[in-house]
């Protein structure tokens, strides 16, 4: 089973650390540096079973990305996690409304990230 996860964040450091944590656990990962890049990648990607996206990003923010991704039949039911900080409680609701599955609060530990990933990924 291809357990592939798409990570979207404008911070390379965050992307790399998430990638590292997930790779350790045997997940395959793909990275995108903002919502637009990710959206352009979506149609050609295969076997994505989870998307983790930041909220605040240039070009296309995370919430708009989720809305657009949900319009694609292929990604209607793909779990999507939103990376957020405590100061953005309203973003959680906005994310849920846009079609997000859940959220990960920054900063997070490897265990916490994996716990949430296991909770929502197939």
């Amino acid at each position: 089973m291809a357990r592939k996860i798409l990570i979207i964040d404008d911070s390379a450091a965050i992307r790399q650390s998430i990638t590292y944590i997930l790779n350790q656990e045997g997940y395959e990962t793909t990275e995108a540096k903002d919502g637009q890049e990710a959206l352009d990648m979506l149609p050609t990607l295969e076997g994505i079973e989870l998307i983790i996206t930041d909220v605040n990003m240039p070009n296309l923010d995370g919430i708009s990305f989720i809305r657009k991704a949900r319009e694609l039949p292929k990604y209607r039911f793909t779990p999507i996690l939103v990376l957020t900080t405590e100061s953005q409680g309203t973003k959680m609701n906005e994310g849920k409304e846009a079609g997000a599955t859940g959220w990960i609060v920054k900063p997070f530990s490897a265990d916490k990230l994996l716990g949430i990933v296991r909770k929502v990924a197939e």
């Binding site: 911070s11 965050i14 650390s17 605040n56 990003m57 240039p58 990376l83 920054k106 900063p107």
Partner: peptide, 17 residues
Amino acid sequence: NAAFRAVHTVKGSAGMF
């Protein structure tokens, strides 16, 4: 917006590392 985003990203990542 750009200024906010820059500070926000720094803040968000700082705690992680």
